[in-house]
Design a protein around this nucleic acid. Structure first.
Length: 415
RNA sequence: CGGGGCGUAGUAUACCGGUAGUACAUCUGCUUUGGGAGCAGACAGACCGAGUUCGAUUCUCGGCGCCCCGACCA
C-alpha cells in the first residue's frame, strides 16, 4: 500500500474528549473513527488489524474442532421471550419495525444457536459439537468507556458447545483454555485465567481471561510464583495473602482487562428450547452447553494499552496491519525514489506486506508517523543507504537500527 | 442511572456583553529535504432552543452530545 494513496492521515493531537490511551493512539494514527459514545468505525488500517486478530482466533478455534458460522444479529423477539431474556437482560437492545413487529439485536447468541443445534444434533453420535462465529455484538451499556474497551457495538468471537455430559464439557473447557492462551500469546499478551461468578444468566461458574493493565475494569489478585489468579469481586482473597494454590507466593493485586470468558451454561438453554438428544440407551436427555467469548475489538484495545510507548503503537507481528513500513527519504532525488519503488515491488513479490511511505514529506514527519502507526519493522531507503548498497532496518520494539545489504533483505523477513 | 466536568474552523486552543485570534491540517506559489521545515497568500468556526439585554459566542434556564468517578456489567 502506498501511503500517498492511504486515505487516512495521522494527527499530532488527540481529540480532547478521548482520554484512554487506546482511543487516543488509534484515532491519531487513523485506525478508527468515533461515531458516538461506545461506537467506532474501523478504517483501513484498523480493519487490517482486526481482521488479523480474527484470523488468529479462527485458526485456534478451527484447530480444536470449532466450526465457523455467521449467525444473524437481528433476532426474532420470540426467541428472547422463550428464554426470559427479553425482560431480564437489561443490556438487550430492542427495536420495533414500522409494522410494530419486535426484534432484538444480538448481544450474545444462545437464543439463536440453541435452536440451530437442536435441528442438527439429535443423537449422542452428533455430540460434542462446537460452533462459533466472529461478528458484531450490541449491548445497551449504561456507560460506554475506555475507547474501544467497552462499547455498545463491538466485535466478538463467540463459540458454543453441546455435550453429552458435564465431564465432557469439563474436558472440552480444558482444550479451549489452551487454545485461548495461544490466541493471547500470538497477540503479544500475557493472559491469566480466573474463576468468577457466572453473572445473571448462569447459576454456575465462569472463567475469565485477564490481561494486566490499568485500563482494565476488573480488580484481581494473582500469584507471581504460579498461575493462580482470582477476581476480587467473587473471592475473599486479597493482596498479601499466601497463594492458595502453590502456597509459596504472596498474592498481588492489580487492574486487569477481561479479554475472554467461558461460561458453563448447564442445561438452561436446551431446556428453554426443549433441545434433547437420544442417548445410546434410547432415552432423551438435555445436552450440557458451554459458551466461550473473546472480544476482538477489546483485544485490539488491550494490545494498544499494554504494548504502546510514548511514541505510539507497537503491534506484534502477527496482528500488525503490515509487516514492514518502507520509508523513502528522497530529498527530491529521483534515483532514491526509484530505488524505493523497486524495493516496494520486490518486497510485495516476496509476499511481504508493506506500507510504503512514498509521500513528499520530510524525514522527521515520516519517522514520527511510522512510530505512531506502529508497524513492526521500518526500512529506510535514502541517498546514504544507496551509497552503501543496502537499507537501514529499525525494529519498532527496540528502536535500534541495523544496516543490511540489499541481497539480504528478503531473508531478514523469512527468519 | 446518580455525581462532576466540558461543548469555539477538520483538529487542538485563546480572548471577549459590541459577530472571534493563534497553531496544525487543507489549497496556491517559491525555497527547503535523515527527526513533525521557512516565507507569502487563501479557505474555514461559537451544539440546539428559550430567557435577560439596545446588543449574547460570552450571563441564566432547558435540551442534546462527549469525557471522567460511581453504580451496573450477558
Amino acid at each position: 500500500m502506498r501511503q500517498s494513496h492511504l486515505f487516512t492521515k495521522t494527527r499530532k493531537s488527540a481529540p480532547k474528549d478521548e482520554v484512554s490511551k487506546n482511543a487516543q493512539l488509534l484515532i491519531r494514527a487513523g485506525y478508527i473513527h468515533k461515531e458516538m459514545a461506545g461506537v467506532y468505525s474501523y478504517l483501513p488500517l484498523g480493519l487490517r488489524v482486526l481482521t488479523r486478530i480474527e484470523q488468529v482466533i479462527r485458526e485456534e478455534m478451527d484447530a480444536i474442532g470449532g466450526q465457523e458460522t455467521k449467525m444473524a444479529t437481528l433476532h426474532p423477539s420470540e426467541n428472547w421471550k422463550q428464554t426470559g431474556g427479553w425482560d431480564n437482560v437489561d443490556v438487550l437492545f430492542k427495536l420495533m419495525s414500522r409494522t410494530e413487529k419486535e426484534y432484538a439485536l444480538g448481544q450474545s447468541e444462545e437464543e439463536i444457536v440453541t435452536p440451530i443445534g437442536q435441528e442438527y444434533a439429535s443423537s449422542y453420535k452428533d455430540l460434542p459439537v462446537a460452533i462459533y462465529q466472529i461478528g458484531q455484538k450490541y449491548r445497551d451499556e449504561l456507560r460506554a468507556k475506555s475507547g474501544i474497551m467497552r462499547g455498545r457495538e463491538f466485535g466478538m468471537k463467540d463459540m458454543y458447545s453441546f455435550h453429552e455430559t458435564q465431564d465432557d464439557f469439563d474436558r472440552f473447557y480444558g482444550i479451549v483454555k489452551e487454545a485461548y492462551f495461544k490466541v493471547y500469546s500470538r497477540c503479544g499478551l500475557d493472559a491469566k485465567v480466573t474463576e468468577a461468578s457466572g453473572g445473571a444468566f448462569s447459576e454456575k461458574f465462569s472463567y475469565e481471561f485477564m490481561v494486566l493493565t490499568d485500563a482494565g475494569e476488573d480488580d484481581i489478585v494473582y500469584c507471581e510464583k504460579c498461575t493462580h489468579c482470582a477476581n476480587v469481586e467473587v473471592s475473599s482473597q486479597k493482596e498479601g495473602d499466601t497463594c492458595p494454590k502453590c502456597s509459596k507466593g504472596e498474592l498481588k493485586s492489580a487492574k486487569a482487562a477481561e479479554v475472554g470468558n467461558v461460561f458453563d451454561l448447564g442445561q438452561k438453554y436446551p431446556k428453554a428450547f426443549n433441545f434433547t438428544f437420544k442417548t445410546n440407551d434410547g432415552t432423551e436427555q438435555y445436552p450440557v452447553m458451554g459458551c466461550y467469548g473473546i472480544g476482538t475489538t477489546r483485544l485490539m484495545g488491550t494490545v494498544v494499552e499494554v504494548l504502546s510507548d510514548d511514541k505510539g503503537i507497537v503491534w506484534p507481528k502477527e496482528i500488525a496491519p503490515y509487516r514492514v513500513h518502507l520509508i523513502g527519504i528522497t530529498g527530491g532525488n529521483k534515483d532514491v525514489a526509484a530505488e524505493a519503488d523497486k524495493l516496494y515491488d520486490h518486497l510485495q513479490e516476496n509476499g511481504i506486506e508493506v506500507l510504503y511511505d512514498d509521500r513528499d514529506a520530510r524525514a522527521g514527519e515520516k519517522f514520527a508517523d511510522s512510530e505512531l502507526i506502529g508497524i513492526p519493522t521500518r526500512i529506510v531507503v535514502s541517498e546514504k543507504t544507496m551509497q552503501e548498497g543496502g537499507v537501514e532496518v529499525v525494529e519498532r520494539t527496540t528502536g535500534t537500527a541495523a544496516f543490511i545489504q540489499d541481497s539480504g533483505i528478503i531473508e531478514y523477513f523469512q527468519k
